[in-house]
Nucleic acid binder design. Sequence first.
DNA 1: CCACATTTTTGAACATGTTCAGAAAGCTGG
DNA 2: CCAGCTTTCTGAACATGTTCAAAAATGTGG
Lengths: 220, 220
Amino acid sequence: MAAKSEQTRQLVADVALMMFREIGFEKTTMRAIAQEAGVSVGNAYYYFASKDELVQELYVQVQDEHAVVAAQALEGVHDLAGRLKAVLHTGIDVMAPYHQFGADFIATAIRPSSPVNPFGEASTAAREASLAIFRSAVEGSSPAVAKKLRGDLPELLWLAYMGVALFWVYDRSEGQRRTRKLIDGAAPLLARGLSLAKIPGVSKVFDDVLGLVRSVKEDS
Amino acid sequence: MAAKSEQTRQLVADVALMMFREIGFEKTTMRAIAQEAGVSVGNAYYYFASKDELVQELYVQVQDEHAVVAAQALEGVHDLAGRLKAVLHTGIDVMAPYHQFGADFIATAIRPSSPVNPFGEASTAAREASLAIFRSAVEGSSPAVAKKLRGDLPELLWLAYMGVALFWVYDRSEGQRRTRKLIDGAAPLLARGLSLAKIPGVSKVFDDVLGLVRSVKEDS
DNA sequence: CCACATTTTTGAACATGTTCAGAAAGCTGG
DNA sequence: CCAGCTTTCTGAACATGTTCAAAAATGTGG
């Protein structure tokens, strides 16, 4: 029965996440986690190869929750601006309990070698899930997004979301009010900006931007 | 005579920077720095309160060099796209020797508590210097940038530069070719995009973007 | 030149992430 | 039920960033 093993793993993860939330990243030492969970330090390492992997656990959990909450918030909202707001606000919502932890999280995540790195391999599943949210936000919107943008837009929005998350980490205003403001302001603006793609002079710029994005993405 | 003291400080800094460049951040242990410099570990800490402060030293040095090289590269270039390219390319140039170190540097820098954090207090001077480069790039360009953009543009470009630096860190292509490509593609595009500010329908969007930037920046 | 104060230097000690050899517990085919 | 194998678990040991009490070197007023 794998249940016992899984139980220990969960116990360690749960204790770790709770402590990250309650007392922050640095004070949550591996020894403290082990003690609180009633296992040895080595045992914690048997399930998680590093402290970073515990952070990864948190990342996955938060992303999962975001997917659920965002899908709910998208119901009945059809305009792109509203849908963007929904996805971004719920994103901030699920991260909220970890705000004080955010800086350490990002410092961990940004390391290419880290399992938590959102661009890295270990996070492929979580990233795909997150991307799917934005894809759904774009595809389900009406009036529809210009066809030529539809393919790349979700990925660009996800990238922008990473930027918003970064902003949020630094946002010391009460309840991260400024981030909320940024979202509320930027979402309609972006939606409006995209609708300009029709204007002849502007359309060319859009094409070039897309071309650049694609060429840089595919290396070559 | 303060010379002896300053000499030790410089020695430690020089050895540290050299080792960062040669063998990377993690392998450059405080003990190794001390040994290589022929001082005790405690002595290194007498001059630098933390390993992070040695990274800060590197940051300042690189920024200083960027200011010099960029000013040179700006001479005789008048169009905004060209000036942007000059500033960005020289930025990458001065960072180049530290590419493998980049990820660790950014992981360090991104922590709000870190002295290296580009938004933080300890980096005010370095940030101002860097901002000044972009201000000069914008102000010295002809045809001139639309007046209403001129004030905020340097700061936004600096922000974009942080983004480019981030991209560069992750860029594993040979000689960071992709980053160069991004710069070459994005600079003219941005310049052209800005020139659209004249078109009535687009102008409004620009105003709103500026309004948002200002309102978020000033908190409230 | 001396006594005292200040600056600089030292190295041992500490906390923390991580590793590892081996113990304990659980499982499996006979 | 047992011998051997695998999984799980333990705690000591290690490397590294950091701290600190005390020593050494330097500077200073008399």
